[in-house]
Design a protein around this nucleic acid. Structure first.
Lengths: 183, 183
DNA sequence: TCTCAAACTGGCCGATCGGTCAGCCACTGA
DNA sequence: TCAGTGGCTGACCGATCGGCCAGTTTGAGA
């Protein structure tokens, strides 16, 4: 094995396993087995389990810092399109790292208690996307279906200043606008 | 303690801790301490740790089943508005349970490696929402900001049929449409 | 050929995990 | 008065966790 190739293999295996089972749900042993080395070898290349996570996310965070800095000084309209295009590009480019952050979701959804949830949201997604089935409408539907629970999740953490009725009305309006008209 | 009040206290404490530290990040000991009973008492009221999660999510899942069933037989336009309003209402009503499902996110975002991410996405959120600061525009911005990474997350799991360019164009279009015009 | 550092191993550590078990305590109805 | 039951406890179990360490292998340079 070359000098840094093992290091990269560790990062790759860790990314896959964090994404599949979550950070806490992945053990150093699991990663070591996939790489084909000992657990101690992981801790030779990285100071700790957390250091693996840090190395994994560093490039994506650095690019987010860059986008963040680039927004200063732009006029409103340019800033908005820059933010949209930059954020979309960044999320697509670093989707593997994003899977790490959302890592526990797949594990939870596979539990018996939540297995039917995915099925039902898929049906709702079809209803939202309409019968055309074009990529545009399907992806818009998925954007809405993923964004709404994510906001419901964040409410109690940071958005105490909105009433339930404000939230409901604003969400329905934004969701309706995001979806293309029925064809 | 009344007969079922301890049971409810357990569910409440479990919901809070799962939301704050994730399912895997919460131990039965942690829950027992908050409730003020022994770990064995939890396992007297519930068969296992997973049974607590199941009981916690059951009502929300039941309502999702109801919405799912109600969509059948409606015409396209009615189905769409029913889906949007039903899903928004459901997500707001069961936000606590949704926090459980997204449970590991807060824990991860608090790690040193990811602390700045939240700050930067907030700046991007302000840019997307514009200077008006109205609830409508802020919530639309949050919808977009939460939905895009969630889709980037889901891509490799279920959306192999779209090219990166299709995805990028559709996401930018849906995001732009979801955001209210700049004021 | 010898040297030495980088790469790596197997074994061990204390801590913590989910779960089990025998038994205690308060209350209830016969 | 006393048997019985629901609610609960403290002690314990095997498994697994992240991390540490002494020692071995390997390969390039002197």
């Amino acid at each position: 094995m070359g000098r840094s190739s093992t290091r990269d293999e560790i990062l790759g295996a860790a990314a896959r396993q964090f994404a599949a089972a979550g950070y806490k749900g992945t053990s150093l042993h699991d990663i070591a087995v996939e790489v084909g080395c000992s657990k101690a070898a992981l801790l030779y290349h990285f100071d700790s389990k957390e250091a693996i996570l840090t190395s994994l996310c560093a490039p994506a965070i650095a690019e987010l810092e860059g986008l963040h800095a680039r927004l200063d000084g732009l006029d409103d309209a340019t800033a908005r399109t820059t933010a949209i295009e930059g954020f979309v590009g960044l999320c697509l480019r670093y989707r593997k790292e994003i899977q790490v952050i959302y890592g526990d979701l797949p594990g939870l959804l596979q539990r018996p208690a939540l297995q039917r949830v995915h099925l039902m949201t898929q049906k709702i997604c079809e209803v939202l996307a309409g019968t055309s089935g074009s990529p545009t409408s399907v992806i818009a539907a998925k954007l809405v279906l993923a964004g709404i629970p994510a906001i419901a999740f964040a409410i109690d953490l940071e958005m105490h200043d909105y009433s339930d009725e404000e939230l409901r009305a604003a969400l329905i309006e934004a969701a309706t606008r995001a979806l293309a008209p029925l064809t």
